[in-house]
Every structure is written in structure tokens, then in C-alpha cells.
Write a protein that binds this DNA or RNA. Structure first.
Length: 288
DNA sequence: GGTCGGACCAGTTTCCATAG
DNA sequence: CTATGGAAACTGGTCCGACC
């Protein structure tokens, strides 16, 4: 059902329509995505792997922009329940499959909210086996286990422990803010875990960092008057790492202007770069 | 100029009623 | 009984004005 028409202001002719759920991105934004796709094809990386931790790869050519931020967060969290064949199971030992009716309990939301979540992911992101009720993640987006190195550059690596701990310690209202950053995964630098314009640049001098002001643009904030609120919220997003509290992301800035702050994501949640030493240094920023 | 905080509006979530 | 629609409550974003 069309809710709004797109009309040529000169001829008055109707040239298209906008439906509920459609997403509008600017020409500038679209050009950058095209450019980044090209960059991706020109780079490859050697992957650093964490100490026997479980993780899932998420295809970064998908930015989940057709989902609401809180839905993205739920989906990423749910993906940590995937087995190696992308079947969703409660835990690795019991192999008990997750059914649609289990979702409210796992996601920690009401039945109705779970139903709405399901309605937005069922078309593409998660497949339900009609006979058995088993749930499968779309393997174009999610992959567990080994990747062929040829395509490795296209994936971000999420750690189960970090994502789960983060999801559980952020109460429901903060799931939106987690989602904002999950949606920016295509813009996160592979080596340094900072939000930036050129995510494949390994040389720190050349990384074009994104400021809080740019971040507001990306996530659709109309002005920058909420930066200080955003800062407080992201500073307050803490989760448990081996018994110690850590921040989800670090906002670093020089001087007094927080509008120029840069955003760096805690590598305990996701990290795909190659250099373990860099990761360890990054971790310093997330301590209490 | 920038930051902060309150008021208002819009979007989300929950709860309940109703249909199937 | 489950699935869906809608009202009410709640949360988050914008606007705007006060205060550095």
C-alpha cells in the first residue's frame, strides 16, 4: 500500500511512491557505500583470532538499514545462539533447537514484542522450517566457523561472550543505542575498531575518523543538541568482561569540544583485524 | 558560541480485547 | 487456544530557552 507519492515538482507527474518501512538515504550516502564496496574488493586481511572464544561472522555488506536499531540488536544477540550450520540452538551441549515460541524468553521481551521482532526478520534474516519449527540464520549474512579467505574482508567478527554480556547488561531502552553502532558496522575500521570513513585503511595516519557530529548525521539525528545526552548514554553502556566492568565504546576527544569526539568500539564485542598487540592497547580505553 | 535541562511530540512496548 | 489489532503507558528525540 502506497502511503506517499513521489511527484515531479515541474510536471506534477507521479514518478513513484514511498511505503511504510521504506528507508531513504541521501545521494552522498549511497555514493559512499558504492565506493566502500569497491574498496572492499581491493583489500584482504589476515585475521586475528581470539583465544578459543566462540564467535560468528557477520557480512558487512549488509547494514541492516531496513530494520529498526533495536531489532538489529536483538538479531545480533540471537545470532550468538547459532550452531556451526546456522541452526539456532539453546546451548552447544544439549543441542536443543530454539523455536519461535522460545524467543520471548531468550530475548527478554514480551510475547507481543517478540512477535513484532519475528515479523520484521522472518522475510530475510531468519528462516523457519515449516515442519519442525527449527530456526536458521540466513547464511548469506551470518557464518560460523571458517571463512574462505577470499571473502574474509566482507565479514565482521562478533564474540559470543561480549555480545551476550552486553545485551543483558543494557536494559531494553538502550538496545536502540547498541543498534545504532551495529548498523554502522560497515564503517568500522578493521584494524582499529574506530568508526571512520575508510574502514580498510590499516595506517593510522590515514584513517578518516568520524566525529560525534557525523555520527548524529548517520543515525538520523536532526541536530547536534543531543550530543551530550548521547555521550552520557554511551559512557553508561557497560558490560561484564571476565568479572570486570568495561564500556561498550570509548568516546575520545581532545580539548573541550565533545562534538569532535571519535568513537571506538570495545574489541571484546567484535574485532576483525589482524594485530593482537593493537587490540591489547585498545582495551586500555575501556577499563573503568 | 556551546552546554544543559525541561516540555512536547512521536515512536515503541506492553497489555488487553477480540477474531479466528 | 493462538494470532492480531488497538489503547495506554512509556521512552526517546527535537525544540527552545536559560545559563555559562
Amino acid at each position: 500500500m502506497g502511503e506517499y507519492a513521489i511527484v515531479d515538482t515541474e510536471t506534477g507527474e507521479e514518478v513513484g511512491e514511498i511505503n511504510s518501512g521504506d528507508v531513504i538515504i541521501s545521494v552522498h550516502e549511497r555514493q559512499r557505500r558504492v565506493r566502500m564496496k569497491k574498496e572492499r574488493e581491493e583489500h584482504e586481511i589476515n585475521r586475528y583470532r581470539g583465544k578459543g572464544e566462540r564467535y560468528i561472522f557477520v557480512n558487512t555488506t549488509f547494514d541492516f538499514s531496513d530494520l529498526s536499531p533495536s531489532t538489529v540488536t536483538k538479531l545480533i544477540y540471537l545470532s550468538t545462539y547459532a550452531a556451526y550450520d546456522n541452526l539456532l540452538i539453546l546451548n552447544a551441549k544439549s543441542k536443543k533447537e530454539i523455536k519461535r515460541s522460545d524467543l520471548p524468553k531468550i530475548l527478554g521481551v514480551s510475547k507481543r514484542t517478540s512477535e513484532r521482532f519475528w515479523n520484521s526478520v522472518k522475510a530475510y534474516y531468519i528462516r523457519e522450517d515449516e515442519e519442525t519449527g527449527k530456526l536458521w540464520l540466513n547464511d548469506e549474512i551470518f557464518k560460523r566457523g571458517k571463512l574462505k579467505s577470499k571473502t574474509a574482508i566482507d565479514y565482521q567478527q562478533f564474540y559470543f561472550n561480549g555480545v551476550r554480556s552486553l545485551y543483558k547488561s543494557a536494559n531494553g531502552k538502550n538496545h536502540n543505542y547498541l543498534g545504532y553502532l551495529f548498523q554502522l558496522i560497515p564503517f568500522i575500521n578493521r584494524e582499529w575498531n574506530v568508526v571512520c570513513e575508510n574502514p580498510f585503511e590499516a595506517d593510522l595516519d590515514n584513517v578518516q575518523l568520524v566525529t560525534m557530529k557525523d555520527f548524529c548525521d548517520y543515525i538520523g539525528y536532526k541536530d547536534t543538541s543531543s550530543i551530550s545526552k548521547l555521550k552520557k548514554i554511551y559512557d553508561g553502556l557497560e558490560f561484564d568482561v571476565n568479572g570486570k566492568k568495561q564500556r561498550f565504546c570509548a568516546l575520545t576527544y581532545t580539548g573541550l569540544d565533545s562534538g569532535t569526539a571519535r568513537i571506538c568500539i570495545n574489541p571484546e564485542v567484535f574485532y576483525v583485524g589482524s594485530n593482537k598487540g593493537r587490540v591489547d592497547v585498545l582495551k586500555l580505553f575501556f577499563k573503568e
